[in-house]
Design a protein around this nucleic acid. Structure first.
Lengths: 261, 261
DNA sequence: GAGTGGTCTAGACCACAGC
DNA sequence: CTGTGGTCTAGACCACTCT
């Protein structure tokens, strides 16, 4: 039938000319099945972030479909930011490392100019049992182990962001303050290279809140000062949540940039 | 050569088998030229919002290209939300009217549930000369005529949003408080059907600010209360700015939803 | 020159909507 | 049944990159 791409080859076309049998109630186009197969390869680690994947011709041969079908599958994966096409070179697995795609997840910009390297200052990194709300958002059982990271971000020397980051303990097993402090570059790059967990997408809830005493002191503002509250849940392959991040942003001189299209 | 799609037909292929001459320094794919031609048809009003455009076969014949090339052009226009494909029916010009695509531009959601019809209360609508900053953002000359709309939005009876909306006076010539009050439905739908100006995309700068006295009174909060400040510039065809909107949102019980992907 | 992705074509067939 | 968009194929050629 036309439903189970869990095997190595797509379900259509034992022969070459035969195409979608279709008419089944759960019809799925061939290229969607190919897309799922490629995603499996990404998820299983067959092709790692930054690496090149086989050429379209090779994949077409492997999956016994035409190059055009592979192309359409890759097109969608590239649109989803899972793959990156480079004409003349090949197709690569997207990575949080050597990319200026970090402005995809940190959208705080200065009122003037644009570029802004930031410095992270780690406050703590400890393991504890998940509070009920965090467990719910991470799809864990209550009291499952989690890692809590608290940190400050400075832009041009100004303390601008306070983050509380919650991660499932089972996935981030060897994560310690030392390893965090040693690592250069964005957190998501570390998660990807050190723990094999790649953030694919995120969903944010944004509010304006008044600074309470502890946060006010960290961000060097007065109690009651208006802060941008950003609550983010990040997802990896299969839409599995793997991070809850609660951020408090000082938005004097900086703003959160968003494009509606 | 391969550069001027301002004429009625694409620049490639006088014959049928001849394809892109290319090798020119300003190479542009055929489907991009088709895309530009279709966009012209949208902008000129040849096909109006909500209407159906010619079938792929027809367009292919008109432009003297293959159906596949037209298809790729339409695919991109649909991805940009300028067109909407409906299998079995045809391809339609996107519209702000009969669509639940209004949640694309108003992203305030209640903490529980999801749906939320809102009521608009018009405070004023008057014409004046553009302040320097507004003129700059709307790409007008200082002191050019503009329309200023001030209004409140209520969700479930709660006053949640105060908006100041600036529009170029030349485009919105007959816009009055009466017409605004009479019109049912979202503003962008009215702009589209009454003034032929369709909003395509928008860019927002979001901050947390303290309510000042006038805004606090309108939103029924205390002075200094944290509000979400949303400054939006909206664009129509050709990336021409046609609206500046400054909103103040009460985010207790509501949040601004954003997806990073 | 060889290999990669990118474009374009032509033709076949399928899924869906409306008559 | 007809017309629409949606899928799939096969082949040709172009643009880009590296050797």
């Amino acid at each position: 039938m036309n439903s189970n791409p869990a095997t190595t080859t797509p379900t259509n076309g034992a022969g070459a000319t035969e195409v979608a049998p279709a008419s089944s109630p759960t019809f799925s186009p061939l290229y969607q099945q190919i897309k799922a197969l490629i995603t499996q390869g990404l998820e299983s680690g067959e092709w790692k972030p930054g690496e090149i994947i086989p050429s379209e011709v090779e994949l077409a041969a492997r999956y016994k479909v035409s190059q055009g079908t592979v192309r359409k599958a890759i097109d969608e994966l590239a649109a989803d930011n899972l793959l990156v096409r480079r004409q003349g070179k090949g197709t690569f697995v997207a990575t949080h490392n050597e990319d200026r795609v970090q402005f995809r997840f940190l959208r705080l910009l200065p009122d003037d100019g644009d570029a802004h390297p930031h410095v992270s200052r780690l406050l703590e990194c400890r393991r504890l049992r998940a509070p009920a709300e965090i467990a719910r958002q991470l799809d864990l059982k209550p009291a499952d182990p989690v890692v809590l990271i608290r940190r400050l971000l400075q832009f041009d020397g100004e303390t601008t962001v306070f983050d509380e980051i919650w991660l499932p303990g089972a996935v981030f097993r060897g994560l310690t303050a030392e390893r965090l402090a040693d690592y250069k570059g964005p957190l998501y790059a570390m998660f990807e290279t050190e723990f094999g967990t790649r953030m694919i997408r995120a969903s944010e809830k944004i509010r304006a809140v008044a600074a309470d005493a502890p946060v006010a002191e960290l961000l060097k503002v007065t109690v009651g000062f208006p802060l941008l509250s950003v609550e983010r849940v990040s997802y990896t392959y299969g839409d599995r949540p793997v991070e809850v991040r609660r951020g408090w942003y000082v938005t004097t001189g900086y703003y959160y940039q968003n494009d509606l299209s």
